[in-house]
Amino acid sequence: MATLAELCIAAVAEAFRTDRELVGTGIGPIPRLGVGLAKLTHSPGLMMTDGEAFLVEQPVPLGPRAYDDRKPAGYLPFSRFFDSAVWSGRRHAMVTPTQVDRFGQTNLSALGGTHAQPKTQMLGARGFPGNGIYHANSMFIPAHGPRVFVTGEVDRVSSPGYNPARRIAGGNYSAIDLRRIVTNLCVMDFGGPDNTVRVISLHPGVTFDEVQAATGFDLIDAVAGETPLPSDEQLEIIAALDPHGIRHTVLPDNPPAQRSTP
């Protein structure tokens, strides 16, 4: 029986469905497995790296392996990543920010305090500002809750969203393209009026009210049904891409996709 993690991986793969040739980047086990699944099924145009510098046509499995146990088909080191993937718009990335607000703005920089002295220093903006202004982005949130989906704005805006108050006249924001948010409860998008956040599918056994209660801003109910369970073929591919079962460690207690009825 499929696990919730595997259902999320299939939902990630759906988020990456494309007929274009572009770099698919999934940061973290579930996003990365989802991109690999998409590439090996409906979206062969996706390009993936080995996580270091080489492009591979066969996604690199998660976890321990020999250093040379990958077959480079191309080359995309950090030293040309902005030229080739980010600033050309030929990329779709899925990341896990610490905070997300109703505009799709995210925070990876710091929590609380001041800029001079944050209460909690995190990674820094990394490539988020450039990713957000130049190419498609999605998010994976393993613990859907109001500490992640905050009321008001995120503490620091690391990546841009659809906030009209943060747009300056003459700036080009046309490439801001927020796709999907896959969480442990549901799948959301930015398809509401003025790019507001909608719930488009609920994982089996989850209610819209439950999702709304776990979110710090108002959601639109656009639920078209349950998030589909992964097929046997998808499960087989996922297992091959994750031979050590790292996906089983992402969600606490590795719950099944189908909640048990009380």
Partner: peptide, 26 residues
Amino acid sequence: RVGLGTDLLELGGLRTVQSPYDDGEV
């Protein structure tokens, strides 16, 4: 274009520039 719509500009004291061509992009 990087930095637009984020906190980096204000916190870093970064300034903008306008294209002198017809597009006028900031």
